[in-house]
Design a protein around this nucleic acid. Structure first.
Lengths: 102, 102
DNA sequence: TCGTCGCTGCAACCATGCTTGAAGTGTGCG
DNA sequence: CGCACACTTCAAGCATGGTTGCAGCGACGA
């Protein structure tokens, strides 16, 4: 590898990040997570969907690196990643990685 | 449409805005448009897709209110909307209006 | 005016992924 | 030790939207 910060690579990451929250359920989950850590059962109380469906979307969010998990006994706590919001903002064209001409 | 300032309405608009750019082609187009105005033929030179396909995605972007059109004789110039980037940033949870999720 | 070029709109096709159902893993408690 | 609970994973079905092809509209050049 020669280039470390490729524009194409950043665009791919941006697409993955944007695509992760460009969904009603995942957007709602992220919005909930901005208020603090929540376990899956807590999330279920706010998002009216099946448990396995929620788990699936949580996996997508986890795969996108937007959330982190912590097992607390029987429960699994989900929290927003430290750089999640920063990454989200950076994913928007004109913010970073793209030459923004006024 | 009656409701003007609702958290749900803002979330819906945010989803529509995010979903509009959460696509490889549309993301590329928006990134191109951040550099200035381009006609469809210009966009075609940078995005390797069919003309009508590009037109379709442009329509999606236009429907999302992210781009504006200007007819220049035979050509149609597409430009990023004034508040496009601002709307994009506002669409991210934790940025504005979304911190009061129950 | 006619022909060509640039762009847009519509209907159909196909791929992706969202949704559903059931089974599986790990943990705490009786 | 065995059961119940919380969550995850797997396989299958269905819906959404991205892609393709053709037809239509408007504008410039001859």
């Amino acid at each position: 590898m020669v280039a470390a910060t490729s524009v194409e690579a950043e665009a791919t990451d941006a697409l993955a990040t944007l695509g992760a929250i460009a969904d009603p359920i995942r957007f709602q989950v992220v919005r909930l997570l901005t208020n603090g850590t929540h376990c899956v059962c807590e999330l279920q109380a706010h998002v009216p969907i099946a448990a396995n469906l929620l788990s699936y979307h949580l996996k997508v969010l986890r795969d996108a690196g937007l959330v982190t998990t912590s097992r607390r006994g029987r429960w699994v706590d989900y929290a927003l990643a430290e750089d999640a919001l920063d990454r989200l903002h950076a994913a928007i064209p004109g913010a970073a990685g793209t030459s923004r001409a006024t």
